[in-house]
Design a protein around this nucleic acid. Structure first.
Lengths: 137, 137
DNA sequence: TCTACTATATGAGTTGGTCATATAGTGCCA
DNA sequence: TGGCACTATATGACCAACTCATATAGTAGA
């Protein structure tokens, strides 16, 4: 149900993120986890903390991002009051959210390629520096 | 005075950047270009505008980043008043700046790998979805 | 003289993210 | 029964990277 060319959503700007973390890519991770199955914030947090790439993620940011997603129509939430423990707000991804995830995937692919080109340029520079200093015309 | 294995510099946070641009990676691009040869801001800007990856870069941001680099000791600048035209501030990368570039390169490699893992997880999710719906126990 | 280009620079605002902290229910156990 | 740890959600203050708009000034040519 999410094959159509992807809508007019725009990939938002990014920012922040400490070294070794996953800067600018919290959103696709959250969308992906929710695409796999509905979950509440704390659950997502635990899943994210299992991977080194997303391990250091800030709880506050996760909750805020989820609320923003809901405002944007990418997820919907309902309170789960039945099971024991504090109430949980359970998020389910919407078709719009799936579209957004696919858009993100394209964006991530592009970003990865751009990083590749940056690294190539860097390595070319390093190799030039390593070349013996011949030809002083 | 800064040769030891790369200093305690930290890769800064990132942010902003429109889709299709080079978000969070303006710094290493600038450092790389300056490592190749000294240049002034406008020159760097022109070189960046030649590549699609860095084409949309904002002049104000370039100048500000260069000034910050100088404050941090990654580059040094001198005014070039000799050649015709408006005065140019010519930047030269310092040994500290080179260390910083190498640190950035490591960081970029890491980021690229993390993107790869995100994409793998995404593709795994897509393939699972594409699998025929057998086994409804 | 007016305009366009070269060149550097700053102010305001947005966004993604961090860190600290608040709040509330629940289970346990001494 | 009081206190603590854990589950769970949430907000305020702040920072860094970036965007957009704008200012300023020298220089070149019509």
């Amino acid at each position: 149900m999410q094959q159509p060319p992807v809508t007019n959503n725009e990939i938002p700007n990014w920012c922040g993120a400490a070294p070794g973390r996953m800067p600018g890519f919290v959103q696709p991770w959250l969308l992906l986890l929710l695409a796999q199955e509905p979950a509440h914030g704390y659950q997502l947090l635990e899943r994210l903390h299992q991977y080194p790439d997303t391990g250091g993620i800030d709880p506050g940011f996760v909750y805020r991002t989820l609320r923003q997603f809901e405002q944007d129509g990418y997820v919907e939430s309902t309170w789960n009051l039945e099971e024991p423990g504090p109430a949980r707000r359970v998020y389910v991804i919407t078709p719009d959210g799936l579209n957004y995830l696919h858009l993100w995937a394209e964006h991530v692919r592009g970003a990865r390629e751009r990083l590749g080109r940056l690294l190539s340029a860097y390595e070319a520079y390093c190799n030039v520096g390593a070349v013996p200093e011949v030809a002083e015309e």
